[in-house]
């Protein structure tokens, strides 16, 4: 499974990569911004994207909207510190599978992946 991690923080990308189950950690690409993620998606096929919402150029909402509008949506799990009820509702409406709160445990991520049929 080819995985794309999109987050402007290197720490967050490292933490997520470390938390990934072995089945998902073999082919991982990292993007440090929404615009870099768009370039990755244009150039390669990914089976799953982990997406931060708060990024300085193209934020997570904008990236989801662009992918939805252009028919390029891929299975996406939002990983964000922003856990407002409305934030969860909005990302789901924009096509994300789930929102996982940052500083999660590996077991929490596994549960979301199992529920989504990705593990």
């Amino acid at each position: 499974m080819r995985v794309l991690i999109v987050d402007d923080s290197r720490l967050a990308r490292m933490a997520l990569r470390k938390a990934l189950p072995p089945a998902l950690s073999r082919e991982v690409t990292e993007a440090a911004s929404g615009s870099e993620a768009l370039r990755c998606i244009e150039g390669s096929r990914f089976d799953l994207m982990f997406l931060d919402l708060t990024m300085p150029d193209v934020n997570g909402y904008e990236l989801l909207k662009t992918l939805q509008d252009t028919g390029r949506m891929l299975p996406t799990i939002v990983v964000s510190a922003d856990v407002q009820t409305l934030a969860v509702e909005r990302v789901i409406k924009l096509g994300a599978i789930a929102l996982v709160k940052k500083s999660f445990r590996s077991s929490e991520l596994d549960q979301v992946l199992v529920r989504a049929g990705l593990l």
């Binding site: 290197r10 720490l11 510190a81 709160k101 940052k102 500083s103």
Partner: peptide, 12 residues
């Protein structure tokens, strides 16, 4: 970068 991310988590 790490400190910015920790603040980001707090701001969430």
């Amino acid at each position: 970068d790490a400190l910015r991310e920790l603040v980001n988590i707090g701001m969430g």
